[in-house]
Amino acid sequence: MNEQPLHFRDIAAQLPASPATHVPPPDLWPRIAATHMSRRRQRRWRRVAASVGIGALAVALALAVTLRQRATTPAIDWQARAQALEMQLDALPLPATSEPMAQLAESELARLDQRLQTAYDRGASRLDLDPLWQRRSELLDALLLVRRQQTLPVRI
C-alpha cells in the first residue's frame, strides 16, 4: 500500500488553530522608523561628505596644476626679451672704438652663447635654460647702454 505524502497543513489541522495574538509589539514600528531615519541621515551625510571630498580633490588638483604651470612658465620670457634686445643692438651703428665695458660684455656673451648651445644639445628643460637667457638679456641691456652712449652726438 502506498503511503500518502504528509503535508504540514494536514498535520496542523489535528491541533487547535494558532491564536490571533501573534502580533508585533506596539513599539516595533517606532523602532523601525527611527532606524530607517537614522540610516537615511547617515547615507545623506556620506553623500555630502563624498561630494565635499570630490570637490576638495578637484580644487586641490586645479591648484596643483596652476602651481605647476606657474613653476614651469616663467613670468618673463627672457628668451624673447634677449632676442628683442639683440635686434635693437643690431640696429645701432657699430662704434669706431670698443669700450672696455663693452668688450667684457661681449666676451661674456660669447661664453654664454656656448653654454646655451651646450644646454640645448643635451635637451635641457626650460627651467635650466631660463637663467641663461635672463643673463643674456642683462648683458645685452648693458651692451645697449654702452653703445647708445657711444653714439650720442657730442655737443660742441
Binding site: 504540514f8 498535520i11 496542523a12 491541533l15 488553530a17 494558532s18
Partner: peptide, 8 residues
C-alpha cells in the same frame, strides 16, 4: 506546550 501548529 504543543497547543497549536505554531508551537508544533
Amino acid at each position: 506546550g504543543i497547543v497549536d501548529a505554531d508551537a508544533l
